[in-house]
């Protein structure tokens, strides 16, 4: 870790003291916060007020062994020039999380729409979760760890009677 971490330390201190959450400074310009879904909206509102105007992306990680999804919100402040990442964990059964589209508007709405399609996470309060990339998809949300695309491709796209394709099926 190098350079001046004053901005990062101050930010972390403010959030930790106000919301009683864990956090760490990974390196210059990177602050990571762990919280739960009850606190999410109030922390996000606080971050937006502190100048985190840009929601860089929302990502979901499927921790299948623990039976949990981890949702990460990557926020960038043009003013402070710091990236704040907020992480929450939700259950894999009936996964749902509050939507941050009331805070970051269309930007958040579209990120959530993608994550809903790929992981099946329900974002409560997001009014448009229509499919984005996949047309008429009926199966498991495809980015989940228990969706095996290799099996799917073998089953759906290879012709059993064609001996030239045997090599791909095995």
């Amino acid at each position: 870790m190098k350079g001046n971490l004053k901005n990062e330390e101050q930010l972390l201190k403010e959030i930790v003291s106000n919301y009683n959450v864990e956090g760490k400074i990974q390196r210059e310009k990177r602050v990571w916060i762990n919280t739960d879904k009850e606190n999410l909206i109030s922390i996000c509102k606080f971050a937006k007020e502190k100048g985190f105007e840009h929601l860089s992306s929302i990502s979901v990680t499927d921790w299948i062994k623990e039976g949990e999804y981890e949702i990460t919100y990557h926020l960038w402040s043009y003013e402070k020039k710091v990236l704040l990442t907020i992480k929450i964990r939700i259950s894999r059964k009936n996964p749902s999380a509050p939507s941050v589209s009331s805070i970051w508007d269309r930007n958040a709405q579209i990120h959530e729409r993608e994550m809903h399609e790929m992981f099946g996470v329900e974002f409560k309060g997001n009014d448009d979760l229509a499919p984005l990339f996949l047309d008429d998809w009926q199966g498991l949300p495809p980015f989940r760890k228990d969706f095996d695309w290799r099996e799917y491709v073998k089953k759906e796209f290879y012709n059993k009677d064609n001996e030239r394709e045997v090599v791909y099926r095995e």
Binding site: S56, S57, S59, T61, D62, T72, H74, R106, N107, Q109, I110, E114, L132
Partner: peptide, 16 residues
Amino acid sequence: PYRVKIRGPSFLHMIS
């Protein structure tokens, strides 16, 4: 890698 999330600029430029 366990998970890779790729953020492309056109994702928002072409939709929102």
